[in-house]
Structures are given as C-alpha cells and as structure tokens.
C-alpha cells in the first residue's frame, strides 16, 4: 500500500450522507472514502448503521442528503441493479443465495451482467448463446477452483452447510468481477478454521484480482489483521477513521466498544 494518495486513487467516496427512516436517523452526516486496491473495514457496535451504509452504497437505500462519488463520477439516484452494472458487488449478513439453484448456477447468475446473448439465440441454444455460456462457464470454473468448492459444484445450495454457503455467496459476488466488493460480516457465525479460510480468500481476492474490498466485521482481530484502513460508526455517526493502529488507540472507539462507564 502506498502511503500518499492521489485524487484519482479514490474508488468510492461518500460525502455527508444522512439517512433516516421516519423519524429515526440511521446515518448522520457520514463521509469517508475507499481507495483503489485497499481493504477497508467498517466497524461499530450493533445498530451503528454499518449495514445501512452498505445499503446506501449499493443503491438499496436512498439517503436524504449527501453525495456518492464512484470512480471519479457523481452517482445519481440509482437502483441496485444499475449499481451492479457500475461494478459494485456484495454479500449479505444473512446469506442471500438462490436456494433452489446449484452452486454452479448461483455463480453463473453472478455473471448475469456480463452476459448479453439475446432471447432468440437463447431459445435455440446455438451460436452466441452457447459460446457465451461456455466462455462464462470457464470463468466460473476458475472461481470454483479458487474457492476450492469443486466438489459441491452441482449441489443445490440449500443443502450446503453454513460455512460453505458463505463461501458460495462470496463466489457469486466474485463472479461479477466487480471493481468494489462489499462484504457484510463475511465471517459471522463461523468457527476459527472457517474464519481463517475466509480471511485467506478475502486477502487473495484483494491481491490476486486487485479487487477493492469494503467489509463489515465484528471480530476485531480479523479487522486489525486484514484491513488497510478502518472507519468506525456509532449510532449513525462517524467516530473515527484511519489505520487499524490509530483506530485501536482512539479513546472514543474504546469507549464505544468496551462500554467504559461515563458516570
């Protein structure tokens, strides 16, 4: 990682985002940026607004105030599927796989935005449609190899154990070959071994594919180990922003996390 950052090194920047539901403020005046090629962690206690932040980034929620800049351009009001086309993929806190489909089909669906064969060639399954299908199958097989999920290629994902489902979901997000990958608690509910595997995958994705990653995680050890920079949210406000070390030593963060009594 370079230490000095130029303007065009920034992949995504949120400026003064405020989001509220009815009277409840979920996010208040949040600004931060994500640099190209980094692993950026968003942390904070439960209800801090982390997931809301991800939902804002991929267009599921629309903030009342603030701007989102992606790849040097101001992003206007967009629906999630339009955001996906810009090159932002994500995973969910509660696994959101397509349960009726096999691992392979889940990953192939992940490549939806990359495929373009028209309806009629699809109907006949000849020419472009078939070529495209095979081409993308190759890409998907690469991801399957990368995640070491060859053996469950054709298993319906509903039947897989939890850890495997998380891995398939990561695979589906990878299949989109996005510029920015959002991971919402990728290690929640995993045992130590599974966590280590997942950490390895996240770092490999970052290094091998050069994908920029923003992740939400509760396990502070994991966060400190794998992220380049950390932003801390609490009650919808930004508490701190900086390198893991800076954040670790930040007085407010320690208070928020450890609940040091103020009385």
């Amino acid at each position: 990682m370079q230490d000095t950052v130029k303007e065009d090194d920034i992949l995504l920047e949120v400026r003064n985002i405020s989001l509220s539901f009815g009277g409840v403020k979920a996010l208040e005046n949040i600004s931060f940026d994500i640099r190209k090629g980094e692993v950026r962690a968003i942390i904070g206690p439960n209800g801090a607004g982390k997931s809301s932040m991800l939902n804002v980034i991929n267009g599921f929620y629309h903030p009342q105030e603030g701007e989102i800049w992606f790849d040097g351009k101001l992003r206007h009001h967009m629906k999630p599927h339009q955001v996906a086309k810009l090159g932002i993929a994500r995973t969910f806190q509660n696994i959101a796989l397509f349960k009726g489909m096999s691992t392979l089909d889940n990953l192939m669906t992940g490549r939806y935005i990359k495929m373009h064969a028209n309806l009629f060639s699809q109907m006949a399954w000849i020419g472009p449609a078939q070529r495209e299908e095979i081409e993308h199958r190759q890409k998907v097989e690469e991801i399957i190899d990368f995640l070491k999920i060859q053996s469950i290629r054709k298993t319906p994902v509903g039947k897989l154990p939890y850890g495997m489902q998380k891995r398939v979901e990561l695979g589906r997000a990878l299949a989109a070959e996005s510029k920015l990958l959002l991971l919402d608690e990728p290690m929640a509910g995993m045992n130590l071994e599974e966590k280590e595997d997942m950490c390895r995958f996240v770092l490999d994705v970052n290094e091998q594919f050069g994908t920029t990653i923003a992740l939400i995680e509760h396990d502070m050890g994991v966060v400190m180990d794998i992220s380049n920079r950390v932003v801390v949210l609490d009650y919808g406000k930004k508490l701190a922003d900086g390198s893991p070390d800076e954040v670790r030593n930040n007085e407010e963060v320690i208070d928020a996390y450890l609940g040091v009594s103020h009385d």
């Binding site: 599927h81 009726g100 939806y112 935005i113």
Partner: peptide
Amino acid sequence: GRFGRSWMAIRDMDIAAEIIG
C-alpha cells in the same frame, strides 16, 4: 440459460437478484 437464471434468481431471493444486476 441466462434468462432462466434471472427468473430463478428473482424467485429465490429477489433482493439478491437485484444486487447482482
């Protein structure tokens, strides 16, 4: 193919389907 997968994606988890495009 691609159409079928987009239908099944909507069927199984419409939010996730939208988020992958």
